[in-house]
Design a binder for these strands. Structure first.
Lengths: 337, 337
DNA sequence: AAAATTTATGTAATCGATTACGTATCGTTG
DNA sequence: CAACGATACGTAATCGATTACATAAATTTT
């Protein structure tokens, strides 16, 4: 492996000059720049990242800690983050905390060890409760999950509003008993729950909410239990895409027909929701936009550490489909949008 | 930040002893080991990874380059790889090549720069054609995609066999004109295509295959074109989960009913395939198992670089559901398994 | 034309660990 | 008891870059 010294020799200059060319610094003549570049090409030289990082104390790396990589919401976020990061010459370390506070803590520790420049984090509720940016030697931007009083930059959906709109839609459709299945381990799940409760109370209806681990299996089990315990409710709502999937599986397994026997709706406009018969009413999140905003916030924070705290709140879009309306919009169950 | 020298001072020993304790090497008395550990705890010392990597020339890091992170097949693989890696004290760098040979090349270059210990790669066809392990300074295990004559360790499905079984099933169901939509950029797509062709020829039927970029949008467009061009075929088969999704979307949009107007089947037992009405017949891949085998092969290769080349071929499971059979198995369209 | 500034370049210190090598101590063995 | 090997530990070299500082040459300013 060629070292910087070999390049310097080959080009007939000092290592300092080579380094300057590498960094694109000024104070190097065109002539030397050309000679150095030729030497680099000739030797196929690639700088040793470990050495560079050791000396410069910079890693040009960001961390992205998502809570569940199986959730398409987060894979889409990660694509957005990568796109912007690589356009800015930064690497991304993608980590999957799996909704597990221990794993999350492990990865945050890892980020510290790797000396990343910044982290985008979708935090568990445990951590969020006592979250303090001063605990970390790098700036953090929270994504998807953040409490009103959390002291950090953040990008998230207006969960309260979206859940209210979704719930109101069901009420307008004549539903009275509406059950809400939500991810209890995330602040977004909780906020959506609060929006649901607010809409129910505004209509003088009794909220009936069921907290659970936000994955397909748990949602399936919870729904099955609900359906076994007597007459099905008018509607069941899921606080994210994974829960929605388990919910529908169980409704089907129970032999119920949507929307005749029970209405169904949820968060996340996943591709398959459009394919169901009938298609499923959902709140669509601007996922790519959320990811893009998060990394942009992070880059700005890295550039200006003392900048005032900022929060980006994006609006969800209610997409009404056949799973929540009595009379089909058309013969085939037309899809809005 | 505490350095190893600070720890040595605090413990009243040399840096060499501290390093030995850190590495868990022998030749250190219990007494010193205890003192060093106490000093480490007292100072909250964490070794500098850059310095360690520079000197030791090891990174304890693996690379995982997947071809499309949006494909649930690959997110599942990545979970398996991470699980095993972390159990062995190794980090994983997850990279998404997005089916783009340029991005793939970029990431392989990155892996070289990062001096990873090994790489698990789901390669594009371009690269696979001229793949030579000697081009890389680290061992590589191919996953999901590999030609018969490719010179590398690999883990993959028996694509040929699975596609044949799926196709034969359709033929047995009375289908004659069967169209195969497949991802032309991957070797697995091609092999599945070959299996399909073999089964068709064996039944003296004319193959009708359509290569495309393996994503939802392209599959939707290709299917729409197919359906516009006259009478729909008896069946349409997709070579992976993303294509299957686009395919079904288009069939629905055309107002056709499955399986009455056209039968549908594909690869990858994604959760939503069970939820369709009727549920979709698929080949289920042992995804987690594939990922686990890949990293195990890689770890063994790292331990014994000169070991003979090995290949793990796993069998796909045909899951017959309502989308390919004329008479529903039961009133509700019962799901096998 | 002398002084001041800018530009180009080189030398050597430095980042923080690992590790080759040297030395002292101790127990074992012939 | 001399010789030897094993064990414990320390000193200093080393990994390969970046960068502070020094210096020489070129350019601008006064």
């Amino acid at each position: 492996m060629a070292r910087i010294l070999d390049v310097a020799r080959e080009a007939g200059v000092s290592v300092a000059s080579v380094s300057r060319v590498l960094q694109g610094q000024s104070g190097v003549s065109e002539e030397t720049k050309k000679r150095v570049q030729a030497a680099i090409d000739a030797l196929g030289y690639r700088p040793d990242l470990a050495a560079r990082r050791l000396r410069s104390r910079r890693t040009d790396t960001l961390g992205l800690i998502v809570s569940d990589i199986r959730n398409p919401f987060f894979t889409e976020i990660s694509r957005a983050v990568e796109d912007v990061a690589y356009a800015n010459g930064l690497r991304v370390m993608l980590c999957n905390a799996d909704e597990d506070p221990a794993k999350e803590a492990f990865y945050l520790e890892l980020m510290r060890d790797e000396k990343v420049s910044g982290v985008i984090l979708s935090s568990t509720l445990q951590l969020l409760g006592r979250f303090n940016p001063a605990d970390y030697p790098f700036p953090i931007v929270l994504v998807d999950r953040c409490e009103r009083d959390t002291d950090a930059d953040a990008v998230l959906l207006d969960n309260m509003d979206a859940a209210q709109r979704l719930t109101r839609h069901l009420i307008e459709q004549g539903c009275r008993r509406i059950v809400f299945l939500y991810g209890a381990v995330s602040s977004s799940g909780r906020q959506r729950h609060d929006g649901y409760v607010a809409a129910m109370k505004a209509a003088q209806l009794a909220p009936e909410a069921e907290p659970l681990q936000p994955n397909v299996e748990r949602a399936r089990v919870a729904t099955a239990a609900l359906l076994l315990s007597g007459k099905p409710p008018d509607a069941i709502v899921a606080s994210n895409g994974l829960i929605l999937l388990g919910l529908i599986e169980s409704v089907r397994a129970a032999g119920l027909e949507i929307p005749r026997d029970v209405r169904v709706a949820g968060f996340d406009d996943l591709p398959w929701t459009r394919l169901m018969t009938p298609p499923v009413t959902v709140i669509a999140q601007p996922t790519y936009e959320i990811g893009r905003s998060a990394i942009e916030l992070l880059l700005q924070r890295i550039a200006k550490p003392e900048q005032v705290q900022r929060r980006v709140v994006l609006r969800g879009e209610l997409i009404v489909r056949g799973s929540t309306i009595s009379a089909p919009l058309s013969a085939q169950g037309t899809v809005f949008r």
